[in-house]
Computed example of a mutant assay.
Amino acid sequence: MSDLSRRSVLRGFGLAGLLAAASACGVPPAHIDAADRAARDRSAQDKKLNFANWPLYIDVDEKNAQKRPTLDAFTARSGIKVQYTEEINDNDEFFGKISPALMNHQDIGRDLIVVSDWMAARYVRLGWVQQMDRSRQPNVTKYLDPLLRNPAFDRGRRSAVPWQSGITGIAYNKKALGREIKHVSDLWAPDLKGKVTLLSGMDEAFALLMQGQGVDVAKWTADDFHRMTDQVASLVRSKQIRRFTGNDYTKDLSSGDVLACQAYSGDVVQLQSDNPDIEFVVPQEGAELWAESLMIPNLAEHKSNAEALVDYYYDPEVAAELAAYVNYVCPVPAARDVLASSKDEDTAALAEDPLIFPDDEMRKRLVVARDITPEERPEFENRWNLIVGL
């Protein structure tokens, strides 16, 4: 895996922010009614689909980087050819790229896209993606992780089905620090002054920081947000926080410039392979479980084919193969038994990695956070960006 983050790292206000602001100011958003979202489905006569994803977010053949074994197996099984493009590098950038067509009720030429759930919520609220036919998706129905089934923006996951999942927690160098970290408040200890980084993206950062203050992030309030930002602003002024980062926190942690940081579980799996002293912690107060999800845009011409591909990746055998390569939290817990039965020792060991398959104790502390609404976003982004310096 690359150290390229699946979560976007620096976001300007951009078109996404303008749409949120317009909605908050009473300007009618570019909402598409449910009856107007579907095109004539060409799946039966046109056995293909166009799938847009992030770079380095799928299994690749060790001998031929152009081959993607799970996609090739899907084509062999179904006869559906997949045009796979790695064109999504940032949630807001991609939103800006395709939103003019979507708001004008035009086909974007893609049948399946993957975005972070905080952004997926925008598409769903705007009516820019279609609901999937769950009767065609028995694997999703049976195997989707219960923790991920009912986000506030898409109850039942009819519009946004997790591709991969992850945890925003704390990474630290246990040997260099000389003690354990168990709580978010441990980051504010004197021996870590100037040696802590937080994530720069508001959507990525806010939940863990609220949880450190005892907030239930499934139903947080504006008061909770402002209380959290007041604390962060104070910690910036006191120089407890070294800086805010994108995915480059991995370099700071590896070099020793930073001893503890807000981090993504998938990145830490990679860091630990190079430095076993790096630990990842789900604090006692809890941590955010997030997902990046598959969605079918409005007017997609191969909806049934896209639904078939989504369901294919929820076959535990296929999910296990993907998880073994990307090393993020697998949204299919049943894939754990598949990996555990592998004759390859390294592959079988992945079944016991809590950063891919969180154990029962860790799962009790994981929460899917309520997303930020369009009405809240302009005010909250302004407050956050003033603190972070964006």
Rank of each mutant, 00 (worst) to 15 (best):
E180G: 12
Y249W: 14
W220N: 07
S255C: 04
A222C: 01
A189G: 10
G201T: 11
M228K: 09
E204W: 13
I241G: 04
G194K: 11
G201C: 10
Y249I: 01
S265G: 09
D191I: 01
K175A: 14
L253T: 08
K175Y: 06
D186H: 08
R242K: 15
R237T: 13
Q270W: 10
A218R: 15
A222T: 12
A263Q: 02
S185R: 13
M228S: 07
F280M: 07
D257Y: 12
V268C: 11
V268E: 04
Y172G: 05
W188I: 02
D252I: 04
K219H: 13
A207E: 02
Q262M: 11
E204V: 11
D223S: 13
K175D: 11
M202L: 15
G178I: 04
L209S: 10
F244K: 02
H226K: 10
S200D: 03
L192K: 02
I167L: 09
L259I: 10
T197G: 07
G256R: 05
F244V: 00
K193W: 03
R243F: 05
Y264P: 00
A176D: 12
H183V: 00
S273Q: 15
Q213I: 05
D223I: 01
K251C: 08
D186N: 12
K193Y: 12
L235Y: 09
R242S: 13
R227C: 00
L271R: 02
S265D: 08
V184N: 07
P276H: 07
G246D: 07
P190Q: 10
A218Y: 10
D267H: 15
L198N: 00
V269P: 00
G246Y: 11
A171P: 06
A176Y: 08
E180F: 09
G256T: 02
G169C: 10
